[in-house]
Write a protein that binds this DNA or RNA. Structure first.
Lengths: 206, 206
DNA sequence: TTGATTTTTAGAGTTACTCTATTTTAGAAT
DNA sequence: ATTCTAAAATAGAGTAACTCTAAAAATCAA
């Protein structure tokens, strides 16, 4: 039964646009790739491109990870501080990431760092995300949706994540999970100037 | 002696563009204002606009406050945690702000919240700022320029400020200084979920 | 097969911005 | 004052990302 031919074709077209566009962006740069180039590569008309994506930028965005993080967040007891919960949640999700997703994320990072335009768009999305996260979080920690503390926490988390992502953009080989977790841990610890803490000597075995 | 007529004229033109552009943006919206509109209002040619600003967006940006904050930061002893120092520095600067500057800042906020495009640009500038601040801060607290902790702190601060600014954008009547200081205080206190702290009963008089 | 509906497409229009070449203007030198 | 030079303003042509409208093509249901 599945879904009709129409839907399947649409999904395929969408995926093809994404794939070809990303390829071209990485090859020639975002700015040097025109909609026409993409349309040509996918063998559609330029008009059709805009049936699938509202703008060139939007092709680069699209995270299926957010819901996963949220689920992992919910899986924890509510008495834990949200930052800790988020950190744990992100760790959980990172370990479940497929190589394909990892590759895509890195490609995005590369584009973000090379094109200011995209960086701006990403950050904007981040801000929106922070707002959403805050509103989503609030009831889960027993607060009203527009609670100040929750929003502020969301802001700090996102700010820290933002820096982490920029760092990754500059060091494409870095272990994303590790960079992000380190940032979250530091935030969790209250952002002390001295960090990491003195390496704890390996647990004494006796 | 002063500076020649040429320079004076240039400054005047620049100021005129800023003023008229802001007026039009606020009146008709950023997107509904074309470069032609601005050029016409200032009585220059559209070409000339681009002699003064590289893009429409850039007209909205321009902060002279950063150096002030930095100076106020430097005026404090270095053993204090940077977040506290920054908070104090910002408080200092906020009290010195002229009504004119205040008005301009609010106008900017309004535009930022109404036009996604501008919001994105602002955030991007924020990220750059965070990086700069981090690099500037590091030596002042005895760290290397790319120190992780310092960058992370800068990220958190900027994230929190970002949320504060968005809040202000939504409540144009809010006291900017107060909103910002509250956010910084919360961050300084380690982002507890319960905030503000129990209102300390007015100092007992006995 | 026919008819309705969705999708694709062509094409025209708008706008931000770039580039080049020309004109205008301010300041300096004679 | 006049003339020269360098800076600034301008016109105009070109590009590319969109938007909108209307027509053509493909899918699906009867």
């Amino acid at each position: 039964m599945s879904i009709g031919l129409r839907e399947r074709k649409k999904l395929k077209t969408r995926a093809a646009i994404q794939k070809e566009a990303m390829r071209l962006f990485l090859e020639k740069g975002f700015d040097n790739t025109t909609i026409e180039d993409i349309a040509e590569a996918v063998e559609i008309s330029p008009s059709t491109f805009f049936n699938y994506f509202p703008s060139k930028e939007e092709v680069v965005f699209q995270d299926d990870l957010d819901p996963l993080v949220l689920a992992a967040f919910d899986a924890q007891p509510s008495h834990i501080h949200p930052i800790t919960r988020l950190r744990t949640a992100m760790r959980t999700v990172f370990t479940q990431i497929t190589p394909e997703q990892d590759r895509l994320m890195r490609q995005r990072m590369e584009l973000f760092t090379t094109t200011p335009e995209l960086r701006a768009a990403m950050l904007s999305q981040f801000a929106t995300l922070a707002d959403q996260i805050a509103d989503l979080l609030a009831p889960r920690v027993g607060k009203r949706p527009n609670d100040f503390a929750v929003h502020n926490i969301a802001g700090a988390v996102l700010g820290v994540l933002m820096m982490a992502l920029l760092t990754i953009g500059e060091n494409p080989d870095a272990d994303m999970h590790q960079v992000v977790d380190r940032a979250m841990a530091h935030l969790e610890a209250g952002l002390p100037l001295e960090w990491p803490p003195e390496k704890t000597p390996r647990q004494k075995r006796r």
